[in-house]
Amino acid sequence: MPVILGIESSCDETSAAICIDSSVVSNVITSQSIHAAYGGVVPELASRVHQQNIIPAVQQAILTAKVTKNDIDAVSFTRGPGLLGALLVGVSFAKAFALARNLPLIEVNHMQAHIMANFIEAPKPRFPFICLTVSGGHTQIVLVKTDFDFEIIGQTLDDAAGEAMDKTSRILGLPYPGGPLIDKYARTGNPEAFHFPEPQIPGLNFSFSGLKTAFLYFVRDKVAANPDFLKENMNDLCASIEKRIATILINKLKKAADQYQIKEIALAGGVSANTGLRNLLQQTADQQHWNCYIPAFEYCTDNAAMIAMTGYYKFLKQDFVGQQIAPLARMQF
């Protein structure tokens, strides 16, 4: 019954979790409000706040799990991708903790961990399955053949879906982080009020840069004609752009499911917390007769539970790394 400590510090959440025999028993997430004043994550500030938060987060995770440091069998950590300075804090802590207690180290790819978040709670997807992974930095369609046998079959050619959400929220004058606010306002808006173009990208790849530009020019022209346009139409604008981003994602996912003849479909990544996307995926799953898997909200955004869960499966394979390991900002699958 292995006890795995998970450490996550890839961006602006400091998180620690404990997984005992495939069950997550604690998941502590500390967010950083300092970045709101700058409209986005400032890497240097993120690193400094991680240094302040890492020890309290780990202590709280251990206390909540009702275990001791002596019970821990291995330390799993996010090696990448992410902000290099932020990753360095988590990697350094994991190495020091493991060295001090003579424990094995388990490196985890952050994007693979998002996919493995679907294994934290039942029901769990059956192999092979297709996972739509959407976050602020990545948008991918991944064919998951077995645990740790991943193949990216589609991805964004420019901006990620989460970045598109953040940029459109900034165009609307919403404070950072804008994605959750678009979700909030969209709930009382009309998604058919305004129509934005769907990029015609061949295959299973995505593009969101053209949509951002179209949205920018649309808002600019409307505000020029009516200075109160944003105030009068905020909910409808949020609902309409949210629907367009969601339909772009789901249309490609449908194409992938048809191409590979797979009906086991999962969702992962920070943007998978978006209510509109979750609802559209569930509706599509009902229509297409898919078996659909969506993690709980707390396991969608960056968290250590997914790192600990991934670490558990790697522990079973004795897939360990040495103390020479270093973070990788652009770590590949």
Score class of each variant (00 low, 15 high):
6 G>V: 00
10 S>K: 01
15 S>G: 00
29 I>C: 03
31 S>L: 08
33 S>R: 09
33 S>P: 07
33 S>H: 10
45 L>H: 04
48 R>H: 15
49 V>K: 15
52 Q>D: 14
59 Q>R: 09
62 I>H: 06
64 T>W: 07
64 T>S: 14
67 V>S: 06
68 T>K: 13
71 D>T: 13
71 D>G: 04
79 R>I: 14
81 P>Q: 05
82 G>I: 12
83 L>W: 06
84 L>Q: 13
85 G>K: 08
95 K>M: 11
95 K>Q: 08
100 A>L: 14
101 R>M: 10
111 M>I: 15
115 I>S: 13
120 I>E: 12
122 A>V: 11
122 A>S: 14
130 I>L: 15
141 I>Y: 12
163 E>D: 01
166 D>L: 08
168 T>M: 03
173 G>V: 06
175 P>M: 08
175 P>W: 12
177 P>A: 09
178 G>E: 06
179 G>N: 07
183 D>P: 12
186 A>R: 04
193 A>Y: 06
193 A>G: 03
195 H>A: 09
202 P>R: 02
202 P>W: 06
209 S>F: 04
211 L>Y: 02
214 A>Q: 07
220 R>D: 03
223 V>P: 00
230 L>E: 01
235 N>E: 12
239 A>L: 04
255 K>D: 03
265 I>L: 01
279 N>A: 15
279 N>M: 15
286 D>R: 09
290 W>L: 03
292 C>L: 14
295 P>C: 05
315 F>N: 11
318 Q>G: 10
320 F>P: 14
322 G>P: 13
324 Q>W: 13
329 A>E: 12
329 A>R: 09
